[in-house]
């Protein structure tokens, strides 16, 4: 991944990340200087004026108007500088250039889905061309999520029934981490995605490759990974291991049994709470119901091969 961090922040990889960083370090250093000075004064006074005898009573010290005025005025000035600066950066972060390339983002428990102008969709893998402003129009399908790319210094909440947006322009080819930063349930910490910043040619080539038809089982394998089915069904035991499930007899929480045929698998994916396998909870989200028939066929074909 391209997220290297040498200091406090990951290396800046978008056009305005550098500006955010300068502001961050300015605030950090000014704060540190003041903090160290105040602590030094505290330690110095603490040693110099430690109590030498229990009967000692110090003299009254008159408060100094000049000192008091200084320490109200100086911080106020500093803070106003930082505020105005922060305001400027904020406005830059808010205003996407008019020629931005738009991608639609959908946040759902617990994956990110990206839809491009060509109709191509991908999950948890975002491809963008380098050196080109990208605007993400984002909405959610269930609860709140938040879309965060540390290397680009962008973050925005994703809200159901409403569009929010972020924009960025990546300056270097590479792959970068996406996090969900608004708590959204069981797999919140697995709601990750990768941004692939590629050259315009590679981007176009990728787009063409997406349009080609894969054999269903291969498509299914990819979706199984991208839509985070692996997180519950392979990496952890939140959901049952699906190996050999096709054609087997499944016991349900209500005590009945069913044969896991294709219809059962389809129903399990689209409407997981309809038939719940015994020994498991209701963690599987209903968000996969919005997948296309082709995608669902692919998933089922893949599960049959397990």
């Amino acid at each position: 991944m391209g997220d290297q961090s040498t200091g406090w922040l990951p290396d800046p990889m978008s056009t305005f990340a550098g500006e955010v960083d300068t502001l961050f370090y300015f605030t950090l250093y000014v704060s540190t200087i003041i903090f160290v000075a105040v602590m030094a004064a505290m330690v110095y006074f603490g040693i110099r004026y430690r109590r030498r005898s229990e009967t000692e009573v110090p003299e009254f010290v008159r408060e100094s108007r000049i000192l008091e005025t200084t320490w109200v005025v100086v911080p106020t000035i500093l803070v106003m500088i930082v505020f105005t600066w922060g305001f400027k950066v904020f406005v830059d972060l808010q205003t996407a250039p008019p020629d931005s390339y738009e991608i639609t983002v959908r946040g759902a428990q617990w994956f990110w889905e990206f839809q491009y102008d060509t109709g191509v969709t991908s999950a948890n893998e975002l491809y963008v061309p380098v050196n080109r402003p990208i605007k993400l129009r984002m909405t959610g399908s269930d609860v709140l999520h938040s879309f965060f790319i540390p290397a680009f210094r962008v973050k925005m909440d994703v809200i159901p029934n409403r569009y929010t947006s972020v924009w960025f322009e990546a300056i270097e080819i590479g792959t970068y981490q996406v996090f969900c930063t608004e708590y959204c349930g069981t797999n919140h910490s697995a709601m990750l995605a990768t941004v692939h910043v590629v050259s315009q040619e590679d981007f176009d080539a990728w787009m063409v490759a997406q349009d080609q038809d894969l054999p269903p089982a291969e498509l299914g394998e990819r979706l199984f990974r991208q839509y985070t089915c692996v997180v519950c069904h392979v990496d952890t035991s939140v959901g049952p291991n699906l190996a050999g499930i096709f054609g087997s007899e499944r016991e349900l929480t209500d005590g009945s049994t069913v044969i896991a045929d294709e219809d059962y698998l389809l129903e399990s994916i689209v409407n997981p709470s309809a038939k719940v396998s015994s020994g498991y909870g209701l963690q599987m989200p209903a968000t996969f119901g919005t997948m296309s028939q082709k995608q669902l066929d692919g998933l089922i074909a893949y599960i049959k091969t397990l």
Binding site: V79, V82, K88, K155
Partner: peptide, 25 residues
């Protein structure tokens, strides 16, 4: 005085709009 000051200064940092976008949550 030590810990609260650190809390206060970092509070100023997260109060700065441009920086908070990155630091929030």
């Amino acid at each position: 005085l030590f810990t609260f000051s650190i809390g206060g200064f970092t509070g100023v940092m997260v109060g700065v709009l441009g920086i908070d976008i990155h630091l929030h949550d």
